[in-house]
Computed example of a mutant assay.
Amino acid sequence: MKYDLTTQVDVGLMEQWLSTKENRHLATGHVGTHLDTYEKSDIPLDYIICQGILWDVSNIADNREISLSDIENLYIPENAFLLVRTGRSEQEKYGTVDYFREHPQLSNELIQWLSNQPLCFLGIDCAGIRRGKEHESADRMLEKNGIFVIENLSNLNQLLNTDVFQVYTLWFDDPVATGLRCKVVVDIVS
């Protein structure tokens, strides 16, 4: 069974936001489901297919930062795609003020630890792994270690009772943009 984790974007909301941006081209890359590539690293083609791991933190994500102590007993296989379910995309519609306001975030200590794990992608169902001025620096640290952050995923609740699945990720290269729109699809292995 296949599930599309790509967020559907309301064109009207997107146009409204883009009209406030100085560079529409650069801003468009950060709309909806996208991966951040601030360092402009080459993403290996092997990253197209990864073993997926779902980490459900929806029970704590609205109350506090997600910390390293929350990740106990999580096995991360080589070249994995870690999907972090905060529940934000299920609670708030993408593009609304409430979706972006005070969205869940990972602690700096957890991000540092994840930067040394055998990951290809770290995906999350909200606007980023850190907020505000810390957003870009957290993404850069992971990217320097070959891990790319994919933001604004949806439908992660579809994977709650799934142990083994493959994640297929396709992105659109752009030599200038720091955000690359992408498509993320899960195939549950039976």
Rank of each mutant, 00 (worst) to 15 (best):
A80G: 07
P118R: 09
I66V: 15
N73I: 00
N73P: 03
K183P: 00
V164R: 11
G128N: 08
Q8N: 14
G52N: 08
A138S: 15
S58A: 15
I76K: 13
V9C: 05
I124V: 11
E78V: 08
S69Y: 13
F100D: 15
S58G: 13
Q158K: 15
I49F: 12
A177P: 03
T37V: 12
I150R: 09
Y99M: 02
T28E: 13
R130C: 12
L159Q: 06
I43W: 12
W55H: 06
I66A: 07
G12L: 06
D125M: 02
A27R: 04
Q105I: 01
L35P: 15
S115P: 14
V164M: 01
L160Y: 06
N116Y: 13
E109P: 01
V84G: 04
V57F: 11
V57G: 02
L83Q: 04
L74F: 13
N161Q: 13
G179C: 02
M1W: 03
R24N: 07
W55Q: 10
I129M: 11
I129A: 10
L54A: 04
V31E: 09
T33C: 04
V176K: 11
G128P: 07
D139Q: 14
I150L: 03
S137Y: 01
K144Y: 08
K2C: 05
M141C: 03
V97L: 15
Y168I: 03
D174I: 03
T178V: 02
L13F: 01
T162Y: 09
C50S: 15
R85I: 01
Q91F: 01
N108Q: 08
T6D: 09
F148K: 00
N116D: 14
E72C: 03
I124Q: 07
I71T: 12
A27F: 12
S107V: 07
V31C: 11
A27Y: 11
S41L: 07
G95L: 02
G32H: 04
L153K: 07
A127Q: 04
R85F: 11
W55I: 14
K93H: 02
S154R: 05
T33P: 14
G146M: 03
I48F: 07
I147C: 05
D125A: 01
I60S: 08
C120I: 00
H30C: 09
I53K: 15
L106Y: 13
I111L: 12
V84L: 05
L160I: 06
W55D: 00
C182V: 02
E22G: 00
I111K: 04
R130H: 10
Y94G: 02
D42S: 11
G87V: 01
Y99P: 05
Q112F: 11
D163Q: 12
D98P: 00
Y38D: 03
Q158F: 14
S41P: 00
P118S: 10
M14F: 03
R181A: 01
P44Y: 05
L54F: 04
D163N: 11
E90A: 08
Q158H: 14
T178Q: 12
S190L: 06
